[in-house]
Nucleic acid binder design. Structure first.
Length: 937
RNA sequence: GCCCAGGUGGUGGAAUUGGUAGACACGUUGGACUUAAAAUCCAAUGGCCAUUGCAUGGCCGUGCGGGUUCAAGUCCCGCCCUGGGUACCA
């Protein structure tokens, strides 16, 4: 009787669901462990084999931790708001809630089939008012908070108002927008509107006019991390720059803490590096340049203040406000034209033309505050408005971009740091001695940087400062399917709703498109206003809003009084292991850390970093199959015939006149290919245009396909979905095979063929416990030494491997174990019972069945992880590889406790050794106990 | 361009601390069972070479070229290639 996985897997999945086997609560008797998967967006396509990879790994780890006595929080839910459902709604009129619900149902069915140990009672969905109430609540807290740079922490806005009443903003050091100084008298004399407008410069959630990434195709604004190379990440539509009034989150306030926090967490170095680059901290100086014949000064940011004497021109970004003011009449026309061109260019065009050097002279001159030299002011779009001050001092000798620009427009280049050859290119390195630089001459770069900063601070023309590349997160979307803002407008001024009005539910609209006047879809909602009749905000929140704090809500998901209780947060604290894709490096993982730090400042959460350990699973790539069509025909040639001549008959059949005709490769559906051999009948049925296809086969009458490793995608016909595999091989096999493919963090191709090896293993494993008639065959005899050794070797290996998330090698260890135990014909309970527990994280269904058959109740999920006992694996002898001059020549079995002198003697006396010694006296013999013996002759 | 990760059989991969390279599995080949197929089981399987009684031995071999060491897939230097991040960030 073969192992009937279909029946058994179904049985235990139902059992776990009915008994709520994985329901958890706070239990102070046990240590907590929180294992989290990244929130999936339930797409209409369902799961392919790549998706569950991380879920399987986290499930194995969760089950392992349970066996180790931990109280494991392992939840799952849905990031249910999002563009695809809404795009579909626009096309079909189908409400996105309906599509979303349907997709979630399908997702859940697929997840259930794989046998995950989630506590489904904790499921959350971002589009559920019970959930998004707390997304809105957090937004209100952000709105009512400001960031105190002194304390490097968020504070309630009231503390700021009190300060304004007393001292104005003269003493305030806050993360804020660009705002002039004002006194207490000013503040107190202002009306509410002006006070509210002023506060808006300080709030952590604020409304302002910003240059945004506008995606006309999607009809919405996008955040920086949602745009890549001028196209939207979702959908790949072009993005243009546009000035719009938008809600933003002041993420930049936390830049330093977001950077520092990376030192505390156990994440991969590459992921931390991506975040560091994204935050982009650079230290330098801010320097004020006077403008000749003008009142105003222009402030520039530089990381190389030491090169100040080498500044031979200045460049302003086209958007810089001073361009308008300083341009001389005779240059006005050309500058205006240039600015207009630069502003209207899409991000895409600008990037495409990076190599092209453009710019325009304004006719004005700036005065170098140290040398008093006059330098020309140019406007050019290689300087970005959004970084630093939007103006630079150009030092062509030591900056490659300035060098190219100076060369192109014939501007002088002055070397101020020795070490390069400025006739050939700029010398950008921070090494060398200062020259041509007044009081800096003779200093090295790092000393000169310090000296310059001291000098400009002393003269009051600048100061040392730090700049970040990180931008505030634009938080409004002109879309329907997202969280409404808990904001209303009174006389055009935004106010937050009071918390008791939450959740502010998403209203019904009759169309999901923007209005005729270009307002977002919520403007179509009837009575979209407060009880008092004030209009509500019509933008909605972006995708990352709901996912920024979901891990907190899982701790206490049904709480209707609070986001989560104090008791829950103090018990569960943070995520111990977080598994998900690297694609969230600059989006979700940045926002969630920001969200968490903010709630930490307010005293709601207890750990400053939300995700202690984070692992990025690799991508599963598709393995496409390729067929070769003879050009201009409907005849396909087998891959192994590509290098041989066609026969006369074949040429006639295909209607071609050459022995080696040209072929066009084409993707064939991997589901009609087995082991790279095409099912030609299925191929003819696959598509109508192939119904008459002819084949040129190999000697064995087979059509062999080529293959290609590429992205798993519908259009490449290489998608493999888990449902079919589970139907054919079972969930336990799928789980183990996904792990067996290779290291969790590596990208690797999917090859369905290999699954049969794991399938064979599962059945072999089953046979260990059964006789040929399928009856349980487990005996109570004392196991032999050999059997104990196999078991304990496996326990040690598997435990070690799980701890370091090396799941692929653990699967190998199980295979080796099953091979050895079946060779030993072991039927002993004392071996097989712990083995069933040991494998249960990987193959929970078969383990549960065996566990019950062995007479245990309740679930194997709460058994005890078998304890490794060293004494069973200790050996007395070791089979030493004996090398001569580093080359292994033979093996020699010797007792482990043999003294080195005796080992030497034994080696030299060994008959195999004579040939290598050849009568010479060995120079040296290296003996590494339990490793190797090396003889140097 | 810059930053990061990685290159091991026909394939996925193993070798955790410098110590027997290729575990485990797929594929391939041969064999057993079967009327046949499937399933299962057994054996071989990095390349080259030599002798041959199923066996024995030699040389080469972890992207390429150097180096350190008794010993290098692993450490150091230089180069090549692949994947990812980022892109005038001053």
């Amino acid at each position: 009787m073969e192992y009937n996985f279909r029946e058994i897997e179904k049985k235990w999945q139902n059992y776990w669901l009915e008994k709520k086997s994985f329901k958890v609560g706070i239990d102070h008797q046990k240590p907590k462990y929180y294992v989290l998967d990244m929130f999936p967006y339930p797409s209409g396509a369902g799961l392919h084999v790549g998706h569950p990879l991380g879920y399987i790994a986290s499930d194995i780890f969760s089950r392992y931790k349970r066996l180790k006595g931990y109280n494991v929080l392992h939840p799952m839910g849905y990031d249910a708001y999002g563009l695809p459902a809404e795009q579909y709604a626009i096309q079909t009129g189908q409400h996105p809630a309906i599509t979303t619900e349907r997709n979630i149902k399908r997702y859940r069915e697929q997840l259930d089939q794989i046998g995950f140990s989630y506590d489904w009672d904790r499921e959350v969905r971002t589009c559920d008012p019970v959930y998004y109430k707390w997304t809105q609540w957090t937004f209100i807290q952000l709105f009512h908070s400001w960031f105190n740079n002194h304390l490097q922490a968020a504070e309630p806005i009231n503390t700021l108002i009190e300060e304004f009443e007393k001292n104005g903003n003269t003493k305030v050091n806050a993360a804020c927008g660009e705002i002039d100084k004002f006194t207490a008298e000013n503040w107190n004399s202002w009306d509410e509107k002006q006070q509210q407008e002023t506060l808006m410069y300080y709030r952590l959630a604020y409304l302002s006019d910003t240059w945004v990434n506008w995606c006309p195709e999607l009809g919405t604004v996008l955040a920086n991390d949602e745009v890549k190379e001028g196209y939207s990440v979702r959908g790949g539509h072009p993005v243009v720059r546009k000035l719009m009034k938008q809600w933003s989150l002041r993420v930049t306030a936390y830049a330093e803490r977001l950077l520092q926090g990376l030192e505390e967490v156990d994440w991969s170095e590459s992921l931390k590096e991506i975040q560091r680059n994204w935050i982009g901290k650079s230290e330098g100086a801010s320097v004020n340049f006077k403008v000749s014949h003008h009142e105003e000064e222009i402030e520039v940011f530089t990381t190389r203040p030491d090169t100040l004497f080498g500044a031979t021109f200045m460049v302003l970004a086209p958007e810089h406000e001073m361009v308008e003011k300083i341009t001389k009449p005779e240059h006005r026309e050309k500058v205006d034209e240039y600015v207009k061109m630069a502003k209207n260019r899409s991000e895409r065009e600008r990037m495409a033309e990076v190599k092209k050097i453009t710019g325009e002279f304004t006719g004005a001159y700036a005065i170098n505050p140290l040398s008093n030299e006059e330098i020309p002011i140019w406007v050019a779009d290689y300087v970005l408005a959004g970084y630093g001050t939007g103006a630079i001092m150009a030092v062509p000798a030591h900056d490659s971009r300035d060098y190219a620009f100076a060369n192109h427009f014939n501007i002088p280049i002055r070397e101020v740091v020795s070490g390069g050859d400025i006739s050939r290119g700029s010398y950008d390195a921070k090494e060398g001695t200062l020259i041509n630089s007044g009081f800096l001459n003779g200093m090295d770069v790092s000393k000169a940087i310090k000296a310059t900063i001291d000098k400009i601070e002393e003269l009051g023309v600048g100061y040392g400062t730090v700049n970040f590349r990180l931008r505030d997160a634009i938080f409004s979307r002109q879309r329907y399917w997202g969280e409404p803002f808990p904001i209303y407008y009174k006389d055009g001024i935004p106010y937050a709703l009071s918390e008791d009005k939450l959740p502010l539910e998403l209203p019904e609209v009759e169309s999901f498109l923007p209005t005729e006047t270009g307002e977002p879809p919520l403007a179509r909602a009837k009575n979209w206003e407060t009880e008092e009749g004030y209009p509500l905000e019509t933008n909605t929140m972006p995708g990352f809003a709901g996912s920024s704090g979901y891990y907190l809500r899982y701790m206490d998901p049904r709480n209707d009084k609070e986001y989560f209780s104090k008791e829950a947060i103090e018990y569960w604290r943070d995520v111990d292991l977080y598994i998900g894709g690297i694609e969230h490096a600059t989006g979700h993982l940045m926002y969630a850390r920001f969200w968490n730090k903010f709630l930490y400042d307010l005293g709601y959460v207890v750990e400053e970093e939300p995700f202690k350990k984070l692992v990025n699973q690799g991508m599963i790539q598709g393995r496409s199959n390729i067929v070769y069509r003879l050009k201009g025909t409907n005849t396909f040639i087998s891959k192994n015939r590509l290098d041989t001549d066609l026969t006369d008959e074949e040429m006639k059949k295909a209607g071609v006149s050459e022995r080696r005709p040209e072929v066009i490769p084409m993707h064939a559906d991997v589901n009609i290919v087995d082991n790279d051999v095409l099912d030609t009948a299925a191929f003819r049925n696959w598509r109508q245009d192939l119904a008459e296809a002819q084949f040129i086969l190999d000697d064995e009458g087979k059509y062999v396909c080529g293959y290609e490793i590429e992205k798993m995608s519908k259009s490449l016909y290489n998608v493999v979905n888990p449902d079919d595999l589970i139907a054919n091989f079972g969930a336990d096999t799928l789980r183990m095979y996904e792990m067996f493919l290779g290291p969790l963090t590596d990208s690797k191709p999917w090859d369905t063929k290999g699954i049969e090896g794991v399938y064979r293993f599962i059945r072999k494993f089953w046979r260990l416990y059964h006789d040929n008639n399928g009856n349980l065959n487990v005996t109570e005899e004392e196991p032999t030494k050999e059997e104990f050794k196999v078991l304990h070797k496996t326990i040690q290996k598997v435990e070690d491997d799980i701890e370091r998330l090396s799941f692929n090698t653990a699967v190998s260890a199980f295979m080796i174990c099953a091979n050895e135990l079946s060779d030993l014909k072991c039927t002993k309970r004392a071996i097989l019972e712990p083995l069933a527990v040991l494998i249960s994280p990987y193959a929970p269904h078969i383990a549960e069945e065996l566990w019950h058959k062995l007479g245990h109740r309740p679930s194997v999920a709460y058994a005890e992880f078998p304890e490794f006992k060293k004494e069973y694996v200790i050996e007395n002898t070791f089979n030493y590889p004996v090398s001569f001059n580093g080359k292994k020549r033979f093996e020699l079995e010797l007792p482990l406790d043999m003294p080195k002198e005796e080992i030497e003697k034994a080696v030299l006396e060994a008959p195999e050794a004579q040939k290598w010694i050849e009568g010479k006296t060995p120079k040296k013999i290296i003996i590494v106990p339990k490793r190797i013996i090396n003889v140097v002759v």
